[in-house]
């Protein structure tokens, strides 16, 4: 596990996808930018009642910024964790990795630790840019923020494992990952409250652990939103754990399928 961490960091530094980083950062910054401009030039610094009713707060810019930062966190983490195995598969090291007696869970924890450390830097940059643009953020309750980070990590890892299996089975990452990202951006309540969505879409969102992690995050960062974060925290852990278990159980057949395919090719 320590070995996985160190090895991935080495690879990261050697071939860091700067272009991809700029791309992800740009998506976050420009999302905040659009909201900022709309808020000032069109909304006149005010938001409609539906937003205040849904969130218990009028801090629209803070809401969008925290959401955009969370979305950056989630997409980058999923990219690292879910794509770790298909990358190994493409580079031909999956087979040797499966041959070593290392178990999957420690491997995953190693990948996650390394991903957390790079992603933390990226999210910090994004938040710094947002502050420079004039967005003010507050953290009323640091303990809840910590809980939110734990929840988000569990949610991301939980979703990444079945996704990884899906990628391996399909032999394809690009479509799978981007579909997940665009769907999550719509369903989980990153930049707007999920109550805006039609009922069917809202229920889809409820089934994703990331939605619950975001609720914890809102409780930690949204002034005036007086909600108890711990039920959402518990749901997030349970849902994330369930995804993880399902993922770990479908991973071996997916790996076999991938290796079978590469043996045939």
């Amino acid at each position: 596990m320590g070995a996985t961490f160190v090895r991935n960091w080495r690879i990261t530094l050697r071939a860091y996808p700067w272009t991809y980083f700029v791309g992800t950062l740009a998506t976050g910054v420009l999302t905040i930018g659009v909201s900022l401009l709309a808020y000032r030039a069109i909304g006149g610094g005010r938001v409609g009642a539906s937003f205040t009713a849904a969130t218990g707060s009028a801090d629209y810019l803070g809401y969008v910024t925290v959401g955009a930062a969370a979305l950056t966190f989630v997409t980058r983490m999923v990219l690292w964790v879910a794509k770790a195995q298909i990358t190994e598969y493409r580079e031909g090291t999956l087979e040797s990795q499966l041959l070593t007696p290392a178990r999957r869970l420690p491997y995953l924890v190693g990948v996650t630790a390394q991903a957390l450390s790079t992603t933390a830097v990226e999210v910090t940059v994004l938040v710094a840019v947002a502050s420079a643009l004039g967005v003010r953020l507050s953290v009323p309750d640091p303990l809840v923020l910590l809980a939110a980070m734990v929840a988000a990590t569990v949610a991301v890892v939980g979703m990444s494992v079945p996704l990884s299996a899906l990628m391996l089975a399909a032999g394809e990452a690009h479509i799978t990952q981007n579909t997940l990202f665009t769907a999550m951006a719509l369903l989980c309540g990153f930049t707007f409250p999920t109550s805006y969505l039609p009922a069917a879409a809202r229920w889809l969102g409820e089934a994703l652990p990331v939605t619950w992690a975001l609720r914890v995050l809102r409780a930690a960062t949204l002034p005036g939103a007086d909600v108890d974060p711990w039920p959402a925290f518990a749901v997030c852990l349970v849902l994330g754990g369930a995804y993880l278990l399902v993922g770990l159980s479908i991973l071996p057949p997916a790996e076999r399928r991938a290796l079978h395919r590469s043996a045939r090719a």
């Binding site: 909201s35 069109i42 909304g43 005010r46 409609g48 009642a49 930049t191 707007f192 805006y196």
Partner: peptide, 12 residues
């Protein structure tokens, strides 16, 4: 949905 709260403001 992201810009909707702003568009619903009284002055928009």
């Amino acid at each position: 949905y992201t810009v909707l709260p702003v568009m619903e403001s009284a002055t928009a």
